[in-house]
């Protein structure tokens, strides 16, 4: 087999209007964003972005794990839920905080600590689960790890339920409810904070995958595990790191969720996980940029449904989206990159 420059017969087969495509690729999303803004108004727009950021953080873990070992890690949504509980335990039960903290000098280290602890704990949980439950099944028929994953998800939920009970637990909203006024719109500072945190994490992840040795190991393992192994990549370590990063991001999403909504429950991870998975498929599973994009889109779909008065149907609409994507574009929006996974 030979590598040729991509020319020859492809040129003859280009469908009409192909020259317009790159332009459309920019114009259509821009129009959609502007349309969403006009339709929802600034407050709901930011609300959608905030939710989307949370889903995106969760979706990244799904897509990374799927990319590398082709497993739908059903327990991933529960990582997010547990992340929220770790942070509320730390802030509320260990430090005894209840209300908001207005001094930035006090708030900043607390936030950093909450993120740090939640991400570390969840990362450790993620790696442990991978070692105990998934690794022994790497060569088993595909059904086995899937069943294990759903079992793990149930275990995590029930552990949390036994500890914290079946009802909602309050999570201290330590971030002050300050609004930033832009024109007539009042945007909560917390929302901006969440969006910024999420975007920073995504960029960091992208740099990590694209620029570092470990990131390269991850990419090559995703593309061809056997070949990567032959080239001296430590497969076990790479997979463990993927789980670590994915779970840590879910943990961060949990912290953010606690700050934003102030309550958590043992089964929060179920629906959030479903939506985040939809986001991952929408973006093109295995593609980290796609997962982030998909997360924001799901956020907009959900908030859009609320604005139109269908808030009770939110989960059903998201699910409908998943089915529609699977019918029309199973490889997702950025799915062309599936073959040589980014």
């Amino acid at each position: 087999m030979t590598a040729l420059p991509a020319t020859s017969e492809a040129g003859a087969r280009v469908p009409m209007g192909a020259s317009l495509r790159p332009l459309l690729r920019l114009v259509i999303p821009a129009l959609l964003v502007v349309g969403a803004y006009a339709f929802m108004g600034p407050e709901q727009f930011v609300n959608a972005m905030t939710r989307g950021a949370i889903y995106a953080l969760i979706a990244l873990g799904y897509t990374m794990v799927y990319g590398i070992i082709e497993l739908i890690n059903f327990a991933h949504g529960d990582m997010f839920m547990m992340g929220a509980f770790v942070s509320l335990t730390f802030l509320g039960q260990i430090l005894g905080l209840t209300g908001s903290i207005t001094e930035i000098a006090k708030l900043a280290p607390l936030l950093v600590a909450a993120f740090f602890i939640s991400m570390i704990v969840m990362g450790a949980v993620g790696v442990t689960i991978e070692r105990l439950a998934y690794k022994p099944l790497r060569a088993a028929p595909r059904l086995a790890p899937l069943i294990t994953a759903i079992g793990v998800s149930f275990i995590l939920q029930n552990i949390v339920m036994l500890k914290y009970g079946p009802y909602q637990t309050n999570s201290p909203k330590i971030f002050p409810s300050v609004d930033i006024v832009i024109g007539t719109a009042k945007i909560p500072a917390l929302s901006l904070f969440i969006i910024v945190v999420a975007v920073v994490m995504m960029i960091a992840l992208q740099l990590f995958i694209g620029r570092t040795r470990l990131g390269r190991a991850m990419r090559s393992t995703a593309a061809d595990r056997d070949a990567a192994q032959l080239m001296g990549v430590n497969i076990n370590r790479t997979i463990a790191i993927t789980f670590l990063i994915g779970a840590a991001l879910a943990g961060a999403a949990g912290v953010v969720n606690g700050l934003q909504y102030g309550v958590s429950r043992f089964d929060d991870g179920f629906q959030a996980g479903l939506k985040a998975f939809t986001a991952a498929v929408l973006g093109g599973i295995g593609n980290t940029v796609g997962a982030a994009l998909g997360g924001f889109i799901i956020g907009f779909i959900e908030v859009g449904a609320t604005v139109m008065g269908f808030s009770r149907w939110g989960p059903a609409i998201v699910f409908g989206t998943l089915v529609i994507v699977l019918v029309f574009r199973p490889s997702g929006l950025l799915g062309q990159q599936l073959g040589e996974r980014a």
């Binding site: 087999m1 590598a3 040729l4 991509a6 020859s8 017969e9 492809a10 073959g339 040589e340």
Partner: peptide, 15 residues
């Protein structure tokens, strides 16, 4: 007739 298959930049079968 003229069967080609390309995998990314790699042409495995050429016309």
């Amino acid at each position: 007739e003229g069967v080609s298959r390309r995998f990314g930049g790699l042409v495995a079968v050429n016309t």
